[in-house]
């Protein structure tokens, strides 16, 4: 049984200029412990699909099964929105513990667990610092710590590294990969960065421009891990994907 099964998702939005179809019969499976990345041009409906998976948006048609179950998905996934969502009045540690508080888990245990993860996330010493005093890379790590601390099996990551400068981004990609190797969760990542997708994923879904539909599935299972961006296999795969995606990017 796949950790996540998505079948025939359709979604359109009504705008002043008429109805815009965003998702067009999107279908895919994600196995437990697998890292799946949705790769597609900007504005193709990647965020919409993640919001549907998180249960925040009802699809017009199609269905989603989480661990074989069909009900409401609110509270069952760890969703990381694209925008900065740290709460400014909470310290880094309090932000990371938000999900535990909402679940009503014992706070002392949640605190100890968060402290452990802060060490692994290179955030030690910044527990009591407010987000406004943290650098962009650190804020992103706090958000990822919050996501990992949610005790949910499925992580939904919406361009988590999108707002960072290239250097921070590159170092965080490698770090994220190491963390994921250690904690092994099922991940659905959405990005338009081809190199990031090749570095991180077990499998790629190539989405078309709006309305998004799965154009092709690319397995990266044969690319050995740990991957570095200079590995010949990574470079070759990246080049192949870029040429494959090129016609979609052109206006």
């Amino acid at each position: 049984m796949p950790a996540l099964r998505v079948s025939g998702l359709e979604k359109s939005f009504r705008t002043p200029h008429g109805t815009v179809a965003v998702l067009n019969s999107v279908t895919f499976d994600v196995e437990k412990g697998e890292w799946l990345t949705c790769l597609g041009p900007s504005g193709c409906g990647k965020t919409t699909s993640l919001r549907v998976l998180a249960g925040l948006l009802e699809p017009d048609a199609g269905s989603v099964w989480l661990d074989g179950a069909h009900g409401s998905r609110l509270g069952r996934t760890a969703y990381l929105p694209q925008e900065d969502t740290l709460l400014p009045w909470r310290t880094a540690l309090q932000n990371a513990m938000l999900s535990a508080e909402i679940d009503g888990r014992p706070l002392a245990a949640a605190r100890a667990e968060a402290m452990g993860l802060f060490e692994r996330f290179r955030l030690l010493g910044f527990e009591d610092v407010y987000p406004s005093q943290l650098s962009g890379g650190m804020r992103q790590r706090v958000e990822l710590a919050r996501t990992f601390l949610s005790h949910r099996e499925l992580l939904l990551l919406d361009e988590p590294l999108g707002a960072l400068d290239p250097q921070t981004r590159a170092s965080l990609q490698e770090w994220l990969l190491a963390v994921w190797n250690e904690f092994r969760r099922t991940v659905v990542l959405v990005t338009h960065d081809v190199e990031e997708a090749v570095l991180l994923s077990d499998r790629l879904l190539l989405l078309t421009a709006r309305p998004a539909t799965v154009r092709e599935t690319v397995s990266l299972a044969l690319l050995p891990r740990p991957r570095r961006r200079a590995d010949p296999g990574v470079v070759a795969e990246r080049t192949r994907l870029l040429s494959l995606l090129a016609p979609e990017v052109a206006p």
């Binding site: 919001r51 998180a54 249960g55 925040l56 609110l74 509270g75 069952r76 996934t77 760890a78 969703y79 929105p81 694209q82 925008e83 969502t85 709460l87 938000l98 999900s99 508080e101 909402i102 679940d103 949610s150 939904l156």
Partner: peptide
């Protein structure tokens, strides 16, 4: 986005009010 975040965590209406 922050409302979405809390809802996706399974926050109740009351938690949404008090925590956000």
């Amino acid at each position: 986005e922050t409302v979405d975040l809390l809802l996706s965590m399974g926050a109740t209406r009351r938690q949404l009010l008090t925590k956000l």
